[in-house]
Design a binder for these strands. Sequence first.
DNA 1: ATCGGCGACTAGCGCGCGCTAGCTACCACC
DNA 2: GGTGGTAGCTAGCGCGCGCTAGTCGCCGAT
Lengths: 340, 340
Amino acid sequence: MPESAPPRRVTAADIARTVGVSRATVGFVLNNTPGQTISEGTRARVMEAAARLGYRPNKAATALAGGRSRIVLLMLPDWPADFSVRTYLEEASRALDEAGYSLVTQTHSAARVARPLWEALNPDVVIGWARFDDDDVASMRAAGITRIVPRPDVQVPLDEAPGVAEGARLQVDHLCDLGHRRLAFAAAADPRIGDLVQARASAAERQAGVRGVDLVDVRAVAHADGSAAEAVRDWRAAGVTGVVAYNDDVAAAVVGAAVRAGLRVPGDLAVIGHDDSPLAALFVPSLSSVRMDAVQAGRFLAELALREAEDRPISPMRYEPETHLVVRESTAGETDVGIL
Amino acid sequence: MPESAPPRRVTAADIARTVGVSRATVGFVLNNTPGQTISEGTRARVMEAAARLGYRPNKAATALAGGRSRIVLLMLPDWPADFSVRTYLEEASRALDEAGYSLVTQTHSAARVARPLWEALNPDVVIGWARFDDDDVASMRAAGITRIVPRPDVQVPLDEAPGVAEGARLQVDHLCDLGHRRLAFAAAADPRIGDLVQARASAAERQAGVRGVDLVDVRAVAHADGSAAEAVRDWRAAGVTGVVAYNDDVAAAVVGAAVRAGLRVPGDLAVIGHDDSPLAALFVPSLSSVRMDAVQAGRFLAELALREAEDRPISPMRYEPETHLVVRESTAGETDVGIL
DNA sequence: ATCGGCGACTAGCGCGCGCTAGCTACCACC
DNA sequence: GGTGGTAGCTAGCGCGCGCTAGTCGCCGAT
């Protein structure tokens, strides 16, 4: 092989040279720059050369010159990295892609690194599911990031977040419709998602009030530390027959504790989860849950990011995702599951 | 507020101006450029000014000038986005961070977008768990990415991948030690991870041979389509008492099917999973599994990426992660779980 | 007294791109 | 014939940084 030099990347200058035209013209053609008139012939020749040479604009140079990276960074909480999130991300990614943006996702790790991703990527927008804490906001500001969602300066009550009220309503209504009169809410212990948990719990309490049933206890529950077992004991003693869980993981912990305590599910205790994770279908008994339309949510996220990136107003946006109940054995099973 | 102009980002030139020194000097100080002698006083003044002004180098400019983005892109398969992966990623991320690199992770979505992430990010290295297909490799090459792991030009037999043989060995040995003489392997149906599934199955067959027990069937199994139920029926008929599952999800599907078929687990059928996902502990009965040391694996990934990025040889690297058994109810439970 | 060497620094190019400020040729119109 | 307008193009700056090729002054050795 006579040619062993590293094949230099094709640049716009290369195209200009082969076509016999200036670099500016190449730029105008490839970017369809408005306000520039290019003859049909030149345009075609440039396009052809670009395709033939396999030209790819250097993103670093584009970002430097344009001052925008066209990257959207989504920070995900590190706990619920499950379920329909995949669909959600895929849809958001595609919608952004169509608009010329790229979505980069990172799960927000507790172990802070020296160089957070927003510093390395120079994203145009950083989006989170929950509000960023002050340290993060300061770090982003220092990194020159001005577009942050949710806006750090705006306080949005989290129980008004899309879908929260509706999901809790479906959970509570389902249990009520099955005749349960005394309910409990099983929260997640993880402090990182504390406010979302709180929001769902409040919404459930509100809906219980609407339906005129008692929601006698809200309590954090975990599988590992025995708190689930304890909760089940207490709830039984208090006459609770239906449990609204923050999500499917928590629901599984409650069901597991109940079964191990010799109870029948759903005969003695009915439990409903949230998110319709794969676990919900897999579990024995399978878990009733609530599913939100991930495709819609993904598009919503993309739209939010785009508006922010392009400095268009986001205030008139209102969004209520389609939410529906998925009934399975843990609330409506005909055969109880328990220990033999 | 008199000042409403967007606060321009601080550049190295700003530092140079305030300190009264040239831009080059600033660069030398901040990068600790070898071969440059800078007086202690100047160095201190530059550092101080940088800190005071909150200077952050523009990554786009750095990437453009240096020709390297210091980004490592990790493409994850989109199926097993679960379990210890988080620890793994966190550790890899930290190790890379220490070396001045950033790890960006993307789950490899089936729905191809117009602009794959490696095109938008200009990563120095792209790493995948499995080999990339030819389209992807071509796309990366076109995007100017030369460092791809696993190397597209090198064929590595997947059953030699780190940990595969050892994990299967632990699974089979455990069931053998409990007295099971006829085993089956429950594979995952997902074609995207076909070769990894195949590798684990082969390793299990080999180990069964070593132990002199029969592994009578290898079959893809899923919860949704009834294939798990069918498999359990067939296995029972064939006298199988122990099942080695590809991972915990598959194990859960098998256990679920067994319980629903009126079998006792582990009394009639013992099942062991792989990966020690959260599901394994949560499930009822809880699932025995195999855990690989995610921290080690993460460091290994980081080291691999760094060597590739810095064009250091990777051939002498050999790595066998610590792997150990997690015994739970699905193989060694004292009380069987079943339908009441 | 001269020269080489070295410590401490600076001028300025190049990375690849977007884009402004032109410039030229051509045509329509008075 | 002059004037204005426009289609179609180009020269070249600026983005912020890394880094090479110097420059300058001082000190020790000849």
